[in-house]
Structures are given as C-alpha cells and as structure tokens.
Amino acid sequence: MLLYSSITKKVLMALAGLFLVTFLCVHLGINLMLLKGDGGLMFSEAATFMGTNQVIKVFEIVLFAGFLLHILFGILVSFQNRAARPTAYACGNSSETSFFSKYMFHTGIIVFIFLVLHFIDFYFIKIGIVAPPPGIASHDFYHRTLLLFSSPWYSLLYIISFLFLGIHLNHAIQSGFQTLGWNHSKYMDAVKFIGSAYSLLITVGFSIVPLYILLSK
C-alpha cells in the first residue's frame, strides 16, 4: 500500500469512494421505503432481499473492501500530506479554495465513527455478533429502525453524521472525477453542480427518515 504512487493511491481512493457514492444511492432508496405507510412491508422485503441474495452478498464484500480501502488510504494519504509540510506557516493560508476541501479527513473520521455505530446497531446484529435488543428479531430491521429513531438523540446524531457526509461528498464527487482525470472544460462545471446536488440529496434524503419517524410519533 505504501509502495503505490501518490496518484495510484488517490485513484484507488476515488474509485472506492465513487463506488460508495453509488451504494449510498441504493441505501437511500431502501431507507425511503420506510416512509411508505405499509407497516414496513416493502422495506422489510427489500432488506431481506439485500440480506439473502447471493449477488448482493458478493457486492457486500466489495463494499466492505471499498470502505476499508477508502478509509485506509484516506488515513495514509492524510498523514503523508501532513508530513509534507513539517513547519506550519505563522500566518494561516488564506487562498481562495473551497473551505471544506481542507477538512476531508475530519469529515471522513466523523463519518467513520458513525459507520462503526451503524454497524454495531444493524450489521453486527444481523450477523449475530451483537445480540438484538429484547423483543426484536435479529433480522427485523423495520422495528429496530423505529426503535432507534424514536430516540431524538440518536436521530440528531444520525442527521449530523449525514450532514458531515454531505460536506464530505460535496467536495468528494468532483474531486473523484478530477482524480480519475475526468476533467473537461465543457463538463467540469456540470460535474461540480451535480456533485453538490447529489450530496445535498444524500443529506436531506437520509435525514427525512428519522425526522418523519420523530414527527409522526
């Protein structure tokens, strides 16, 4: 991993990141099914499909690999970057750049912490590492979700996490394109716009579910 050139590292990160971006889209779709007032039928069906289908199983591995790759490289790259400037400026940088682009590591770490919680709460239960809360079956994601979001604190944490993910993605999507060399004067503005719109969609989309559950209580 250390031996990869700087560009290779970034390219792998970008590929993994952009893959995660598409995954987020699928995840969001399933989440939004919660909003359908059918007592979680459709949502559970989708969750079951995702949990049992063999193709999805393979994808799951890819997904984990993607997370791992992205996170490990993210951390590695960030440390290397820090090492590239051992002495800081006395007068901080005031160049005109997008503000959040400098905090990818920080937003990434916040997302990471959330991911760990998220895993404990759902995935670990599913695979049986962690025992489900009393009264809920280990594959019953619907009620599990309702339970979690009934706590305003959890919901707040969830929403804040997605706010940071949104911030991460706002820079990340166009950055990923640039890293892969997909920068063209004709399309770059569109890419930037779509990237921002998409990250907004992710933040808003994922936040709707807890808000809906909180408000409909």
């Binding site: 590292k9 970057n81 090492a83 590239a84 400037r85 750049t97 682009s101 400098k102």
Partner: peptide, 18 residues
C-alpha cells in the same frame, strides 16, 4: 516524473485547487 515527485516528499493532491 510522478515517481520522482513522490520520492522527494511532496504531498498528494486533495484537489483543493489552492
């Protein structure tokens, strides 16, 4: 050129465009 750049201890690109 990229290999040389890495060897010399420059950082990676975060596309901040500064």
């Amino acid at each position: 050129m990229v290999a040389c750049m890495d060897e010399l201890g420059f950082g990676n690109c975060s596309n901040t465009y500064a």
